[in-house]
Amino acid sequence: MNFPLQKQRILPGFGTTLGYTIFYLSLIVLIPLSALVINTAGMSWDAFLAAVASPRVVASYRVTFGAAFIAALINAVFGALVAWVLVRYDFPGRRIMDALVDLPFALPTAVVGITLATVYSANGWIGSFLEPHGIKIAYTPAGIVVAMTVIGLPFVVRTLQPVIEDIEKETEEAAASLGASRWQTFRYVLFPIMAPSLLTGFALAFARAVGEYGSIIFIAGNMPMVSEITSLLIITKLEQYDYSGATAIALVMLVASFIMLLMINLLQRWSRKVTEG
């Protein structure tokens, strides 16, 4: 272990594999992504600002980030509950439920989209129950929240599950033997252990929801200023051959997702510290 430089040359293939990795990464990811930055760099500042800050675009940010926030919040609450139940309780169908949590990862977004739009429309399975009470989900901003909730569902559950599994029984025993009620144990002992991962799961679900397209457009109604998400607006601009407009908005979204990625990395480091420390 004390001779890392000697060690690294023992196995063959370093140059070939690293070279290929960097070549393929550049070809598929880095060069195409840089196209976005370089194309926008060619725009004047005023043109850029006009493209990314027009009222319709700003409204789409509000719809996208607002709905993603609500959806991530729903997922934080119910995802934590689902993770807790799946780890701690035994009930018939538990393993199937557990496997099912990954469905939004495996099911194509277009299928999620048309299905949710059908189920939540006025004569759909769920919509027909809500319609008489004056609750409209499909073709309203609420539909966007529903779709974002579904596609973000696995993140909170899957980040929390291993953390809850790893909580030592002794921790809870100590709290109980010191006279803590079950609620106090949860509030002051268990929740602080879970909190960083819960926040990480929230951030992951939020980031995923912000970039989502396929599952939303079918249920959103896509009314400009009301239920139009930013991803759709990029496509609309493309279809109108407004390439620079589409590129500018895309760059804003790309920068937003990089900031979120950075925050998620920091959150993960924090939660590792809490669970290991």
Binding site: L30, L36, S231, S257
Partner: peptide, 23 residues
Amino acid sequence: LITLIDLPFSVSPVISGLIFILI
């Protein structure tokens, strides 16, 4: 390098298509 490999996961699908149109 690991962060760069993960990059496509955090890029919105619409942007993933757009970059190839730009090229």
